[in-house]
Structures are given as structure tokens and as C-alpha cells.
Design a protein around this nucleic acid. Structure first.
Lengths: 212, 212
DNA sequence: CAGATATGTGTACTCAGTATATATTAAAAC
DNA sequence: GTTTTAATATATACTGAGTACACATATCTG
């Protein structure tokens, strides 16, 4: 978080946050599709055009931290410890995020309200899928670069596709586990167990691709 | 294809086809986002409301055969030969579709125009992703039933997620191969090679899940 | 302080999708 | 064969997201 010193940037950030906060609150209260942009503008006390100025699409007010996920994935592959294979680094990332209680894989009262909000809206589900595909592309390119292949190398694409599929299934299963057991520990276990199994399969699929 | 005998159904089918044909032609000519529903109605010589009567969403005029894919997946798992594991049956399906030159995995001049049309529109990509997720859900449930588990069994979900991810990557890579080599044979080979590798990894991830 | 620039905002528009009412046409019932 | 009944086509009028453009105002820079 840079927290810029000039007033203009600070004001812009404040406006952005006001809109995002108002929007997220309304989305969780009434469901994404039952909140209009006009209502969000009203609630954040800004003009309607200002909303679109900060968030080109309505969904962006809900998913406004996906860039952090990108950064983490890039860093995990790009700045991995010496001697660690790229795929291994991504598996370690999953474990580290859980150990550090990162909001990305947080299974808590908060996620318990967030997930149904997404599940209740086709638009939000569509954006979630798009982000997943964008992350898969990013991982594919990072893996390809790490093993010295073309950016669209099919091995890297397959690995990335399998990885994101695994994480998605693991995330939803962990969320389900939390909802049923009320235990963050059990949710974390369920998440990591599935990630490890997926990763094992992934490595098997990549057996013929050295150093990945 | 039932080809119904009563005039009413025949007329409805003809109207549907006229709209779908006009729409697909316009989409490929000018790109999905540069065609309005009014233009489609005009081209198909029907009223605007008739278009929405037949196709609730604009995207449905492009993806109007996804039900066939569902049928094939259901049948592959549900009516597999005795002694064939569900996952094996799905792998065999991929090979059979290629061998039978099914439109689903067709790499040809036609697919060469279809794929860029999808790639050029966020709306069509979103629908493609949604269909992929719907197919994954369907496969997950079919697998779960085949091995006597709950419909939301995590093993079945993981297997289905990995399978659809594999097929997606394999399809796009095969398309790329066709575009570059102009050879349907090479495209088919690329497709099946990736499907087989993904399936191998999938089986490894499922090693602890008997009979899947 | 003056000019350049980022930001906020209003007006007017396009287009997808929905609600509702009505007309027409084929099917079914008698 | 005439009368009901139901499916289909279509018009009108609406909602809401997103865009284009113009303009005002606040902030930064020289």
C-alpha cells in the first residue's frame, strides 16, 4: 500500500473506497442484481458518472482486489527459491497462503457471506470465471518463461489449466467444509488436501516436461 | 432429430433456424458485439420480440447446440460398457468423437471461423466459460453417481474440474495447431495427446478413489 | 499566479433484456 | 364443421448497464 502523499491521489482513493464499500455492503445486503448503479452512487454520495469513472463495470466494485492475486502468482513463480521447480513453488504458495491466513483463501464468517453473494448472481459468477481464466493465462506464461518455452507453450497451458481447476474446486470444497463444520482448521485441511492431490496429478501429467 | 409432424412445431423450428442462421452469419461477418438484436430480427424477417421468444439471450443464438454435448457426456458415463471405469469412459469418448469427426471437436475451416468469433467477444467467452462450468457440474454428478457417492462429492468434483480444464486446453491447442499446419490430422493428434496427458494426471490424482 | 491536467458530474444516447397486452393461427373438442 | 383452447408472433413501453461528450472544478506544476 503506497498511501500517496499528494492530496489529489488521496482524494481519489477515498472516493474509490467510498464507492467500493457502499457497493459491497449493498450487494451483500440485497444481492448484486437487486442493486442499481444509481443506488450505489446515491449511497456513496457521488454522481453516477463518477462510479463508472472508478469502476468501468458494476462487477469491478465487488472484485476489486484481483490484482493482488496476480502479483502473488507472478512472485511465486518468478521469485522462487533456488532449486525449487515452478510447479512446486505454486504448491508451496497455496500452503503459505493458508498458513499466513491470507484473505485469498480465508474460510471465515466473511467468506461465508461473500461466496453466496457471488453464487447468487450470474454476472458475478461470470466475472469470477473470467478472473480464473486470466490467472490461468498468467500462470501459463510464468511457467513457460520459467522453463524457457514460448509464452503459449501447450505444456505450460495444461499445467496452468489443471492448477486453476484444482484451486477452484479446493476453494469451494473448503468453503463447504467451513459452512458445515464451523471450523477454519477443517476447512484449511480440506483445501490443502485437494490442492495436494490436484498438484500430484498435475505433476504426473507433466512427467515428461523437465524442470516444470 | 425428431422432425415433428405437426405444422405448428415445424413452423416454430423453421423460425428458430432462420433466426439462428441469420444471427450466426452476422456474428461471423461483423463480430458478435457489432450486431444488434434488431438487425438479427430484420435479417430473419421476424419481430424483435420473436427473437427473444426463441433465444432468451443474444449468446444463445450462437451457442445453440450445447445440449448435445451434455447428452454425450451423460451417455458416456451412464451407458458405458461393463467393466469400464467412468473416467476411462470419458477418455474413450474424446477419442471416439475425434475418430467420428464429431462437430464438437472439429478442427476445420468452419471451426477456424468460429473460434475467433468467440475470442473476439467478452460476452461469447463468458458464455463459453459458463457452459464449461455447467459441463463440469454435469460430469461431477455423473461420476459421483457412477461410484455411489453424494452428488457434490469432492473427488468427483476434482476429477470433473481437471477433465474439463484438460479438454479446454486441448481444444484450443488443437485449433492453434490446425491454424498453423492446415492439417486436421495434426490437430487431432495434438488434441488427443493433450487429452491423454491430462487424463493420465487425472487418474494419478484419483489414485486413492477406487473405481472412478 | 497562470496554465496544464486530473477528477467529478450532468445530459443524452445505445442496446440488451423484461413485462404486458393483443392478434393470429393451428390444434383439439364437441 | 364449428367452437373453444392453446401456442406463437409481435407491438409498445419500460428498466438498467454502459458510452460519448461536454463542462466545471480542484489540484498540481512552472
Amino acid at each position: 500500500m503506497p498511501e500517496p502523499s499528494d492530496r489529489r491521489s488521496r482524494k481519489r482513493l477515498a472516493t474509490s473506497k467510498a464507492i467500493s464499500d457502499a457497493a459491497t455492503r449493498l450487494f451483500m445486503e440485497r444481492g448484486f442484481d437487486h442493486v442499481t448503479v444509481d443506488e450505489i452512487a446515491e449511497a456513496a454520495d457521488v454522481g453516477r458518472m463518477t462510479v463508472f469513472n472508478h469502476f468501468p463495470r458494476k462487477e469491478d466494485m465487488f472484485f476489486d482486489r484481483d490484482e493482488e492475486g496476480r502479483e502473488m502468482l507472478r512472485a511465486a513463480v518468478g521469485q522462487r527459491a533456488a532449486g525449487v521447480a515452478p510447479l512446486e513453488a505454486l504448491c508451496l504458495l497455496a500452503h503459505r497462503l493458508v498458513a499466513e491466513r491470507s484473505p485469498v483463501v480465508e474460510f471465515s464468517a466473511r467468506s461465508e457471506r461473500l461466496v453466496p453473494t457471488v453464487a447468487g448472481s450470474e454476472t458475478l459468477k461470470a466475472r469470477a470465471r473470467a478472473i480464473r481464466d486470466e490467472l490461468a493465462d498468467l500462470v501459463a506464461e510464468a511457467l513457460a518463461e520459467a522453463i524457457g518455452r514460448d509464452p503459449d507453450d501447450p505444456d505450460a497451458r495444461l499445467a496452468a489449466g489443471l492448477l486453476l481447476a484444482t484451486w477452484t474446486v479446493a476453494f469451494l470444497e473448503a468453503h463447504r467444509t467451513f459452512r458445515q463444520t464451523r471450523s477454519r482448521e477443517k476447512a484449511n485441511e480440506a483445501f490443502l488436501a485437494l490442492v495436494d492431490r490436484g498438484t500430484a496429478g498435475l505433476k504426473a501429467a507433466m512427467a515428461a516436461t523437465p524442470y516444470i
